[in-house]
Design a protein around this nucleic acid. Structure first.
Lengths: 224, 224
DNA sequence: TAGATTGTTAATCGATTAACAATC
DNA sequence: TAGATTGTTAATCGATTAACAATC
């Protein structure tokens, strides 16, 4: 069905296009050009068309794209037409926020269990789910066919949690703990590193404040 | 001081190297080879050496890198030797988690204010800071010299919050709201999209389950 | 000196972009 | 048909990787 392998950079942008299409639909826009959709997604139209060309030919020359139809095709390509049961491990502040995050539940993702190693927190109700002991992980994975695990534990616990996830059969991990995870090659890990993001901004910000020379006392000589 | 402009892909990895170096230091490892550091950072050693070569020549051939010295050089390059006052806007579940996230405060970042538009929440104490009205944004930015703003509001509010941040003089924005932000060219926006990350995992997971043909009923014919 | 490891070169690979032929 | 816009081509750009000369 998919013509060829889709480039990684394109895959990473498909969710953005999907969101842009949803936003157009909310405004009851039925058809859009690559220019309009690209603008809504924050990319240029050449890149958008190139990206979409990897999925197939879902537009009409001279007309544009049917918003609803394109949305379905992208959702199907990503795999959002099926159900994705998810477990979240580590229900601290961040795990709590993730459990309540509507963006997870809105698309095919369904949080089936919240796990925490802390005995004191067990039974507590978060986002309509009871916190369960981490030891139940493999039973839960088996019961619900969980393929995706989210790690929101402290860094020190993350590798061990990840190892248990892999043992339980999970092959896709979203890691919020600030540590590099080692996994077998068949397992995918994506890392969301809040502190890295701030650091990357700081790097560029620093360069803005001192555009030409880091040492202002040198400037007169450069000019002279 | 910096020899040339550092490639964007390299900048994005510097925080990872920094973290790996910190972890080596915690284990009291004073010196490391590019091979060891690369392994701790989850990259290959050729990439690591190439990345570091953009910063300067901080290793010793035949010996390796002094962990403490390299850490300082990377921190300086990113700009972490200076103080970065940050404001967080939108203190829901996620904003709450961000305010408490130690990874922010640990490096040069200092959360100076938590803002929320909801009058009912104002005065509430989160992570040792009182939630203040959003209207105080520009006064706070001026007072503390805030250069980085974090948006953790619902999507509907994000663009307006961002516009106010830009008006107040903020030129670096970390956006957790699931929406594309439009900003003037001098402003940097980084987006952390939790739902996108799950979708990218789902795409790859889908491909793992059905490696050859998406429709199993076609397989016999293909084989025959 | 011999062994080890960096920093750099050059080749390869993948992503972006502009331009335009195809076609509605 | 004329105007609009896609899907594709080809050129450019940037990132990755392996190999190795430089050098501790």
């Amino acid at each position: 069905m998919s013509p060829t392998r889709i480039p990684e950079a394109t895959v990473a942008r498909l969710p953005v296009y999907l969101r842009a299409l949803n936003s157009l639909l909310e405004r009851e826009i039925r058809t859009c050009s690559s220019e309009e959709l690209a603008s809504a997604a924050g990319v240029n139209s050449a890149k958008l068309r190139k990206d979409l060309s990897h999925l197939g030919s879902y537009g009409t020359r001279g007309v544009g794209y049917d918003v609803e139809y394109l949305r379905y095709q992208i959702a199907r390509e990503i795999g959002l037409t099926q159900d994705w049961p998810v477990v979240i491990v580590g229900i601290g502040n961040l795990g709590h926020a993730l459990a309540n995050y509507s963006g997870f539940s809105s698309r095919g993702f369904r949080t089936v269990a919240l796990l925490d190693a802390d005995a004191a927190r067990q039974g507590e109700l978060v986002a309509g789910l009871k916190i369960r002991p981490f030891t139940e992980l493999s039973a839960i994975v088996r019961e619900h066919g969980v393929a995706i695990g989210v790690i929101a534990t402290p860094a020190a616990a993350a590798q061990s949690v990840c190892d248990h996830m892999v043992d339980a059969g999970i092959r896709s991990v979203l890691n919020f703990a600030p540590t590099v995870l080692t996994v077998p090659p068949e397992v995918d890990v994506r890392m969301v590193d809040l502190s890295s993001e701030l650091q990357i901004l700081a790097y560029h910000e620093q360069r803005k404040s001192a555009p030409a020379s880091p040492d202002p006392t040198l400037d007169p000589e450069v000019v002279a």
